[in-house]
Amino acid sequence: MNISQQRHYETVEKAIVYIRQHLQHQPSLSEIAEHVHLSEFHLQRIFTEWAGISPKRFMQSMTKQRALQVLKTSDTLLEVADNVGLSGTGRLHDLLVSCEAMTPGEAKNLGAELVIKYGCATTPFGTAVIGWTERGICFLQFVDQDVSQTVAILQQQWPLASFHQSDAQPISESVFSGSGNKIHLIVKGTNFQVKVWEALVNSQSGQLLSYAQVAQKIGSPKASRAVGSAVASNTIGFLIPCHRVIRGDGDVGQFRWGSDRKVAIQGWEAARMDANN
């Protein structure tokens, strides 16, 4: 992951915050550029290099009308994918990510004899702490606080595990580069939580789903609130794509790592899906 890409994200994040705050006004490129203290040319270049689309097109993708339209077609997309025996379209990491739940015994022993490597890495969406075992990735959280606090969250999940700091950048490269490498996840949660997370892993890159649609997908149509709790409990960001879940009225909704980052990831995925069409 290029360090400049992370710096670009910091600039783009400021632009996204401004766009969201002034969405009804539909700010011009010059207004956005002035807010982030760049020329129009440099903002256009940095934004397009990071997102793959211009600030104007990104702004269009953020409108509630787009979200509502995507929600209307999501059921159809899921139905088609199910009918052909696929969980998604294969873009980005779809069909290349698999989930394996910890056994009840493994979860109960709180990680005894488990060896977890961890480290900080740059990503297109800022710094992240990543944890992994020989069996796969068990933790990925974006950092907006002291790194040690995020590492402490990982260690609290597995208090009896052995932790070894390591170079997480190659893991980040594999996750975010779209290289086609198979990625395996190790998750710890209730049966219901795991069902929700698996449904999200099996969604399409660039797709948006309401909590109700996820509940219907897992066969529990009245469990929208429980789906929301499961989404909020996710500690493997991006790979378990809880950023694809929005409110039924098209509002972006909450996100463990900030709604502005959620919008950024949604736009980033949508741009890459458009590029592949």
Rank of each mutant, 00 (worst) to 15 (best):
G90F: 03
G237K: 05
S210V: 00
A264G: 03
V17E: 13
H243Y: 01
H164F: 09
S224M: 07
L110R: 07
E79K: 08
C99T: 05
N109W: 06
W132D: 00
A264F: 08
F176L: 13
V245E: 00
A161Q: 13
P221H: 02
R135Q: 00
N191T: 15
V97I: 03
R45P: 12
D146K: 07
Q204Y: 06
D249C: 11
S166D: 02
G258M: 01
V97L: 09
A128G: 07
A226G: 09
S30D: 14
L154S: 01
M1A: 01
A152S: 10
A51S: 10
L29P: 07
A81M: 05
E269V: 02
Q44T: 14
C242W: 10
L95D: 10
L95F: 14
D249W: 10
L160G: 06
N181Y: 11
Q266E: 03
G52W: 02
K108M: 06
Q156A: 10
V175D: 00
G52Q: 00
L140G: 09
I153E: 12
V227W: 05
L160M: 00
Q156S: 02
P55T: 10
G248W: 12
T122G: 15
A223P: 12
L38G: 06
L208F: 13
W132K: 06
L71G: 11
D75Y: 15
G126R: 04
E106K: 14
G119V: 09
A215P: 00
S233M: 11
Q24P: 07
Q24R: 01
N276L: 15
Q5R: 15
V12F: 08
I240A: 04
F142Q: 10
S4Y: 15
L95S: 14
K188C: 04
S233K: 07
H93P: 13
F192S: 06
L92M: 06
S87G: 15
I153Q: 12
T73G: 02
G237T: 01
L110Q: 14
G85Y: 08
G52E: 06
I171C: 02
R7N: 12
L140K: 05
L29F: 11
A81N: 01
I246S: 03
R244V: 04
